[in-house]
């Protein structure tokens, strides 16, 4: 079961589908803000925004896309060496009354998203928050679910899911392994 689960074309198709699902669910792109969670949620958010803009030309992909660093909201800081902070950049219009779509690469325990919800709350008061992920590998530890999923991948807890993206890793791929991965992020 280990090996490359998704290749570049699979990832591309999944993102295109999610873009359409977001538009469909929200009846268009008005008030839509995409916030990527660093590191790899960020390029994914930009790709989704670009796809949305293809469908809705009035949607300004750059202006409606941001970055939400959740490091300082994590509940496991004391369990690891000090983490470097990522960047939080919001659309200049802010997120009040917007529909915020959080974008991340791998959806696992739900703790990252719990932290992201806290971070969003400190940034403003959106009308709604939705979640888009490239991979859902299960093993939720909190009552949180994703609204848009690229692919559900059943995994064992000991296995690792590595997402590689051209912007950060030079190629697009999702790899399942049981050891430490050679590159990319693990979740």
């Amino acid at each position: 079961m280990t090996g490359t689960i998704l290749g570049a074309p699979d990832i591309s198709r999944a993102l295109t589908r999610i873009a359409h699902e977001i538009l469909e669910r929200n009846g268009g792109a008005d008030n839509l803000v995409l916030l990527g969670i660093p590191t790899r949620g960020l390029p994914l958010a930009h790709r989704l925004a670009a796809r949305i803009a293809e469908v809705e030309p009035s949607f300004d992909a750059d202006a409606r896309c941001g970055s939400l660093d959740i490091t300082m909201y994590r509940d496991d800081l004391a369990k690891h060496p000090t983490r470097n902070l990522g960047t939080t950049t919001l659309p200049s219009a802010g997120i009040d009354n917007a529909v915020v779509v959080l974008v991340d690469d791998v959806f696992h325990t739900g703790r990252t998203i719990r932290a992201a919800l806290d971070a969003v709350k400190d940034e403003g008061r959106p009308r709604g928050v939705q979640l888009a992920v490239l991979v859902d590998r299960g093993h939720r530890e909190l009552p949180i679910r994703a609204d848009f999923v690229g692919k559900n991948i059943p995994t064992a807890r000991t296995e690792r899911v590595s997402v590689l993206l051209t912007e950060t890793d030079g190629e697009d791929a999702v790899i399942l392994s049981d050891g430490k991965p050679s590159g990319g992020v693990t979740a």
Binding site: D69, M72, Y73, L77, N84, L85, G86, T87, T88, D118, D122, E123, G124
Partner: peptide
Amino acid sequence: IRILDTAEQMAATQEREIRKLPT
């Protein structure tokens, strides 16, 4: 540089309405 970069992120949070972090 790590301290300065971290401070940049901290400074960004200080421009928000809610400046307190739970960290």
